[in-house]
């Protein structure tokens, strides 16, 4: 007797993903896809693909998708949610998209308490353009525009997005997770599901920051890259809940 132990989620299309080996996007896509299926919201969800490596997310998520300008996801999400409050809107964004060029849109959609969900993938680098310094690149970390390592005296210090947003009244759920170990992947799934549930329940703005790895632009093997997540990224970006419903009550 055959027993099915693993299957493709209906939340993703059958288009093969073209992310690099070891990249976190594939896992994170799957977690979001599973969530759409499990919460039974896939057919009323509109996803927003960012500009960056995951611009191709519009081919991968099995729901209506839109691709806006770099960093403008939260503004587009705002426009969509206001005219289609019956739909579930999520914006999938990278660190350059969300925390650099789109910081104003991020902060103001959070401050307005828009009932949307943001999946924020922080891998501390601009992937698609070839490994330039991101607003979340760690001090000392090399990139193609910080070839000697990020010097905080010149380039400032990385931005901790969850901490920054937690000072606002608007967001109801903020959590930082990682996908470097099976245990963390399970926790990441829980957080993503909770973030979507918050929106389904009409409670307001939710954001999950996912610390991810970019072996290609970090010039590392996949294994080395998840080591860096544990040894360097998580110490600077502590995992945990920064704002929750319980706290709001």
């Amino acid at each position: 007797m055959e027993k099915k132990v693993f299957a493709r989620t209906k939340g993703l299309t059958e288009t093969p993903m073209r992310y690099c080996p070891g990249c976190g996007h594939g896992v994170i896509h799957r977690l979001v896809g599973e969530t759409l299926e499990e919460l039974d919201i896939r057919e009323r969800t509109i996803g927003i693909a960012p500009v960056g490596c995951s611009v191709f997310a519009d081919e991968y998520f099995n729901c209506d998708m839109i691709q806006p300008a770099h960093g403008r996801g939260p503004a587009v999400a705002t426009g969509m949610k206001r005219v289609r409050p019956d739909c579930i809107i999520f914006s999938y964004q990278g660190d350059g998209d969300l925390a650099s060029i789109g910081m104003a849109e991020t902060i103001h959609s959070a401050a307005r308490g828009e009932n949307i969900t943001i999946i924020f993938v922080n891998n501390a680098i601009y992937g698609m353009t070839g490994g330039q310094m991101a607003p979340t690149t760690l001090p000392g970390m090399r990139s193609t525009t910080s070839p000697f390592g990020r010097d905080p005296k010149v380039a400032g210090n990385p931005i901790r997005v969850c901490e920054l947003l937690s000072s606002l009244k608007g967001p109801v759920y903020l959590e930082r997770v990682a996908v470097n170990t099976p245990g963390n992947v399970v926790k990441a799934k829980k957080a993503i599901k909770k973030a979507f549930q918050v929106q389904v329940d009409g409670l307001g703005f939710s954001l999950v920051e996912i610390i991810s790895q970019c072996p290609t632009d970090w010039a590392m093997t996949p294994l080395q890259s998840i080591g860096r997540v544990k040894d360097e990224m998580i110490p600077y970006y502590p995992l945990g809940v920064f704002k929750s419903l319980e706290e709001k009550k």
Binding site: I46, I66, P68, A69, R72, A75, V76, A77, T78, G79, M80, R82, V83, R84, C87, A104, E105, H108
Partner: peptide, 12 residues
Amino acid sequence: AAINMLYGASAC
């Protein structure tokens, strides 16, 4: 942000 809100609302 304003024009991008239009982008979203118009797409709907």
